[in-house]
């Protein structure tokens, strides 16, 4: 660091640096037991701020179980998950410092309010609601109208509703789905449904986005477009992304760090190139050589 910088800017860059260094998500020694089955054993994982971290592994390795532990759908049998929120710079110059949240006793909806959003492996949209309404649901945790607001419809509530519509529509436009906004979600093509799920997740204003096999069922062309989209939303929305994926091309080209899981354990982690050379990973994916 330049010695000549003034003290204040030094402090500012120092905090910025520590921000950069801290992980958004820390999974510490998490184990998950379903009856006699150890689905996760002592898993450690970190998602660095602003990074795209991939989680790969053969089917049944426990990737989605880990996702469900992180998003508080399951409570881990042991260990804990920490979500570190970034400091927020308000328009009036105030800075709300970031904080570390232990997610062990947090409910899924509270985790979303903290700034974590996810998509599902088997798409879980609200099929009977319109495309626009699906995204509007994402705004729920950032808005506040209650029963009285609904019954009396004061000005503030009307304005809030219109703001919800506008923001949701902007997101749809960003995802290229705006022409379909009045369509029921069930009528969308598969790739469009995937994109709608991402739009809905973005509507919750997250800083950590968890994507569970976003490229599943897509053809190579669509996967390529998805890869660009993931890179693009990371920049645009200032996101850190944790990604489960089977498509190796996508994983290798998009991620900064890769974790490999097998039988509920992390067997390898590191940069994509390192991981792909790791003999344990090759063994897990291709089986042991007989010779």
């Amino acid at each position: 660091m330049d010695i000549q910088t003034t003290a204040s800017s030094a402090v500012a860059s120092e905090t910025a640096k520590s921000q950069q260094a801290t992980a958004v998500l820390e999974v510490k020694n998490v184990s998950m037991r379903f009856g006699g089955l150890m689905a996760l054993t002592d898993v450690n994982l970190e998602v660095a701020r602003g990074s795209i971290t991939a989680l790969i592994g053969p089917n049944g390795a426990g990737k989605t179980t880990l996702f469900n532990c992180v998003t508080c759908i399951y409570t881990p049998t042991q260990g804990s998950v920490y979500l570190n929120s970034p400091s927020i710079h308000k328009r009036d110059g105030r800075v709300i410092p970031g904080a570390s949240h232990n997610l062990t006793k947090v409910k899924p909806y509270e985790a979303t309010a903290l700034g974590m959003a996810r998509t599902f492996q088997n798409i879980r949209l609200f099929p009977g609601m319109t495309v626009l309404e699906n995204v509007m649901i994402g705004r729920h945790c950032r808005t506040s109208a209650g029963i009285l607001g609904a019954l009396l419809r004061p000005r503030g509530v009307k304005r809030e509703e219109e703001a919800i519509v506008q923001r949701s529509y902007q997101l749809l436009k960003y995802m290229g789905l705006h022409e379909l906004y009045r369509e029921e979600a069930r009528n969308l093509a598969y790739g469009q449904q995937r994109r709608l799920e991402i739009a809905r997740a973005l509507a919750t204003d997250p800083y950590l986005l968890l994507l569970d096999e976003p490229a599943a069922g897509m053809n190579p062309h669509e996967t390529l477009a998805l890869r660009d989209l993931v890179m693009q939303i990371r920049e645009e929305f200032n996101l850190s992304i944790l990604l489960i994926e089977h498509d190796m091309n996508m994983v290798m080209s998009v991620s900064d760090k890769v974790y490999v899981m097998e039988y509920g354990r992390v067997i390898s982690s590191g940069a994509p190139a390192e991981v792909s050379r790791d003999p344990r990973v090759i063994k897990a994916y291709l089986g042991e050589e007989d010779a």
Partner: peptide, 11 residues
């Protein structure tokens, strides 16, 4: 429509 999705969407 979907209880799990609705919870993870912050409801």
């Amino acid at each position: 429509e979907d209880e799990v999705a609705c919870e993870t969407m912050g409801i």
